[in-house]
Computed example of a mutant assay.
Amino acid sequence: MGRNIDYGNLMHDAMRGLIRKVLQDVADNGLPGAHHFFITFDTSHPDAELADWLSDRYPGEMTVVMQHWYDKLEVTDDGFSITLNFGDAPEPLYIPYDAIKTFVDPSVEFGLRFESQDATDGDDLLATRADQEKHEVVPAPIEHTDHSDAKKKPGKKDADVVSLDSFRKH
C-alpha cells in the first residue's frame, strides 16, 4: 500500500500558521487601520478556555470580534489568549488554533473556513477575493467588544448566515 500526501491537514496547518503570524503582528503592533477580525471557534474543544457562563451560553461554537477593545493578547504556537469585553464584563479566553472554525477580516475581504477533521471529502475551503462568492460563513452570535455596548445587556440571538459578499466593497 502506498502512502498519500495529506493535503487537507497540510493546508489547515498552513492556514493556522497564517492566523498565528497575523495575531502575533497585532500583539506586537496593534490592529492597523480598519482591520478587525471575526473568529468563530469550537467552545467544546478540550483545550479551549472560557468562563463557564460563556460555554453554557454558547455550547457548540462562538464568534468573537477583535476590533475596538481587547487586552492581553498573547500568541503561542498552539493558540492565543485574549481578554474581550462581553457587555461590561471583561473575560479572558484561550483559543487553540485547531478550535478555530472561521477567521474573517472583512476590512480586506479575507476569510478562512476550516472543515471539521472528519470531513469525508477532505476539501478545505479558503475564501479569498477570487472565490468568496462561492462560500458562506455561518457565525454564532457575535459579542461586540466596543465600549459603547458595554452598558447594554448582551442579548442572545440566533446565528445569521452571512455571505462574504456582504463584506465586498461596492
Results as ranks from 00 to 15, higher is better:
F37T: 00
A150H: 12
E143H: 09
L125Y: 01
I100M: 05
V65Y: 01
L18N: 05
V65N: 09
I5R: 13
N4A: 14
S81I: 07
D146F: 04
R113Q: 10
L112A: 02
E49D: 11
P96L: 06
V161A: 08
V161K: 07
R20T: 11
D71N: 10
P46H: 13
G17V: 04
L50T: 01
P154C: 06
F38Q: 05
E91D: 05
G111Q: 02
F110I: 02
P32K: 08
G30Y: 04
D98E: 12
Q117L: 14
E49S: 12
F167H: 02
Q67K: 08
Y97T: 09
E74R: 15
V137R: 01
L31Y: 11
A51G: 05
D56F: 05
V26S: 04
R129C: 11
E91I: 02
R113M: 11
W53C: 06
P59K: 10
Q132P: 00
D158P: 11
K156I: 09
D6M: 13
D165L: 13
G8H: 04
E74T: 15
S44H: 15
S163L: 12
A51N: 11
I19V: 14
R113V: 11
D25W: 10
P32Q: 07
P96R: 04
I82M: 02
T76C: 05
D98R: 01
V65K: 03
Q117D: 14
D56T: 09
D124N: 09
G30E: 00
V108K: 07
R3L: 11
G33W: 10
P32M: 03
A48R: 08
P46F: 13
A140D: 04
D25Q: 14
G33C: 06
Y70H: 07
K72G: 01
I5G: 09
D121P: 01
S116N: 10
M1F: 13
H68V: 06
H144W: 07
I142G: 04
Y94K: 07
I95N: 05
I82Q: 00
S163Q: 09
D6Y: 15
H170D: 15
Q117H: 09
G79N: 04
F167G: 00
N4G: 12
T76I: 06
E109D: 13
D146R: 00
D52T: 13
A159G: 13
P92I: 02
A51I: 00
E109T: 11
N29E: 06
H45V: 06
D131E: 10
Y58L: 05
A34D: 15
E109S: 10
F103I: 00
L125I: 15
L31F: 11
N85F: 01
P106H: 07
H36C: 08
P139S: 01
K152I: 08
I19L: 05
K156N: 12
E49G: 10
S81E: 02
M15L: 15
L50A: 08
D118G: 09
P96I: 02
A127Q: 03
Q117K: 08
D105H: 11
H144T: 13
V162R: 00
D123L: 05
R57D: 06
L31S: 12
